[in-house]
């Protein structure tokens, strides 16, 4: 029974992780950079939802759309003015550009919003519905639903639309994509913007059961990286599987380990997988 409950929780949490991580994976797939600011994009999304709630009494499930829009804009601007300039630069620039952006965002939040923890009060906050004998928390279920919906939409976008196909073409082979007339820099900008937007949306969606504070991004970022790398950086479907693996591992290990050590198991799994498969479970090797 406890195992079944843990399994259900794991799948729910995994679905939310899929939402949080898919943007990171998309950005790596198309631009081949690891966005270290993804956790801070999530944090900004949480603040957008928080202030929408305080000022307009907007439910985070709805302000998620607003958070997506705002972060989409921020992402587009950052790509256009900064990220673009390091794509051909040395590795150290590619890594530390987004590290710099994350430091700036984190501390801007600290300077303007203070270090206090904030949360919202929604009617369904503590509600749960029963699946047979197993209680399912409503805020988690709603976040999971958003995650599933977004991943489906993204899947159809990438597979069925011309722009999505162009995006996949750039991910596979930039030169060939350029030669077939794809505007590669525009595709990259939109991919980065969507990736940032999805982090913002995820931030809003998790707000009903999480606190927001300036360094909340750090809480999620290592988990995000773990999932993205497990699934193979750049592999959107792999990220979903990685999310479920991590979610289930976390909740199952909580049964026999103190909660303080939950993430230890996840990180150990992460390191072990990379020892055996240096490019992740479903990753392909990127040419140097």
């Amino acid at each position: 029974m406890a195992v079944l409950q843990a399994l259900v929780n794991g799948i729910l949490v995994g679905g939310v992780y899929a939402l949080i991580t898919v943007g990171l994976t998309l950005i790596f797939g198309v631009l081949e950079i690891v966005n270290f600011a993804q956790g801070e994009f999530l944090m900004v999304g949480m603040y957008v939802a928080y202030f929408s709630y305080v000022a307009l009494h907007l439910d985070p499930m709805l302000s998620a759309v607003l958070a997506f829009g705002i972060l989409f804009g921020i992402g587009a601007v950052l790509e256009r003015w900064l990220v673009r300039r390091v794509l051909r630069g040395p590795e150290i620039s590619q890594i530390f550009l987004t590290v710099g952006i994350s430091i700036a965002l984190q501390n801007a939040a600290l300077a303007f919003f203070g270090a206090d923890f904030h949360s919202v009060h929604v009617p369904y906050q503590t509600a749960s519905i029963f699946l047979g004998p197993i209680p399912i928390s409503v805020p988690y279920l709603l976040a999971f639903a958003w995650g599933a919906a977004i991943n489906l939409v993204l899947y159809f976008f990438l597979v069925r639309t011309d722009f999505g196909r162009a995006m996949r073409a750039v991910a596979v082979n930039t030169v060939a994509a350029t030669l077939s007339g794809i505007n590669v820099s525009r595709v990259r900008m939109v991919a980065f913007a969507i990736g940032a937007g999805l982090a913002g949306l995820a931030g809003a969606v998790i707000l009903p059961y999480a606190y927001v504070y300036p360094t909340i991004g750090l809480q999620y970022v290592v988990i995000m990286f773990t999932i993205a790398v497990l699934g193979g950086l750049g592999n959107v479907n792999g990220a979903v599987i990685g999310s479920l693996i991590v979610g289930i591992t976390q909740s199952l290990s909580a049964l026999f380990l103190p909660s303080a050590l939950q993430n230890l198991v996840v990180f150990a799994l992460f390191v072990a997988v990379l020892m055996i498969k240096p490019y992740g479970l479903f990753g392909r090797s990127h040419a140097h």
Partner: peptide, 9 residues
């Protein structure tokens, strides 16, 4: 730290 971040960028 904002200055740190911007300098790094």
């Amino acid at each position: 730290k904002i200055v740190y971040g911007l300098l790094l960028v």
